Simulated assay, not measured.
Amino acid sequence: MTEILRYAAFTDRPDGGNPAGVVLDASDLDDERMQRIAAEVDFAETAFITGRDGDAYLVRYFSPIAEVPFCGHATVATAVALAERGASGRIRFLTPVGEIAIETTGGAAGPRAAFTSVDTEVAELPHATVERLLALLGLDAAALSTALPPRLAFAGNWHPVLVVDDAAAFDGFAFDPDDVRAYMNEQAWPATITVLHPSGPGRFEARNLFPVGRITEDPATGSAAASVGGYLRALGAVDAPARVVVEQGRHVGRPGELTVDIPVAGGITVSGGAVAM
Rank of each mutant, 00 (worst) to 15 (best):
V130R: 04
S271N: 03
G86E: 08
L152R: 10
A147C: 03
P150Q: 08
S227N: 14
D178A: 15
D140Y: 00
S63C: 08
P69N: 10
H73S: 03
R214E: 15
V164R: 06
A147F: 01
F93C: 05
V270L: 09
D179H: 10
D30N: 07
E205I: 11
A44E: 15
S117L: 05
A77W: 04
L258D: 09
G16P: 09
T221S: 08
V264W: 06
N18S: 07
F115M: 03
E32A: 15
A224G: 10
A226Q: 10
G21H: 08
L144E: 09
A77D: 02
V22T: 06
I268F: 07
V195S: 09
T216F: 12
V122Y: 00
I100P: 06
D42Y: 11
V163C: 15
G54D: 07
V68F: 05
A66R: 03
V264M: 10
E121W: 00
G273S: 04
D165N: 15
P14S: 13
V195L: 13
G222L: 06
V23E: 09
A83V: 02
V23R: 05
S271M: 03
R33V: 15
F43D: 13
M184C: 07
T194G: 09
F115L: 05
A81P: 11
G249Q: 14
P211Y: 06
A9S: 13
S117W: 05
T95C: 07
R203W: 11
G106S: 11
V270T: 03
R132F: 02
T11S: 09
F173W: 11
P19E: 06
D179I: 03
E121V: 00
R60H: 12
G156T: 14
D239I: 07
S199G: 07
E217A: 10
Q187S: 09
D53A: 05
S88F: 06
G98N: 00
E131W: 00
R6N: 12
G202L: 14
L137N: 01
D166L: 10
V59P: 04
E99M: 10
R92A: 10
A224H: 11
L29V: 15
E99H: 07
D30E: 03
A101R: 13
M34E: 01
A108L: 09
D165K: 14
I49E: 06
V252R: 09
I100Q: 03
A77I: 08
R243L: 05
E32S: 10
A77S: 08
S227E: 12
E217K: 14
I37T: 14
A87C: 05
A128C: 00
I215R: 04
T46L: 08
V41D: 15
N18H: 05
T75I: 01
P14Y: 08
D179Y: 02
P255C: 14
V118M: 01
R254W: 14
V130W: 00
A276D: 00
G222N: 04
T259L: 15
D42L: 09
V23M: 12
A220R: 10
V22P: 02
T120S: 01
G86V: 11
R52S: 12
G51R: 08
G230R: 13
D140H: 00
I215P: 02
R112V: 05
G17D: 07
P201G: 14
A167E: 12
V264A: 14
D30Y: 05
L196T: 11
P111V: 00
H73F: 04
A242L: 13
G229Y: 08
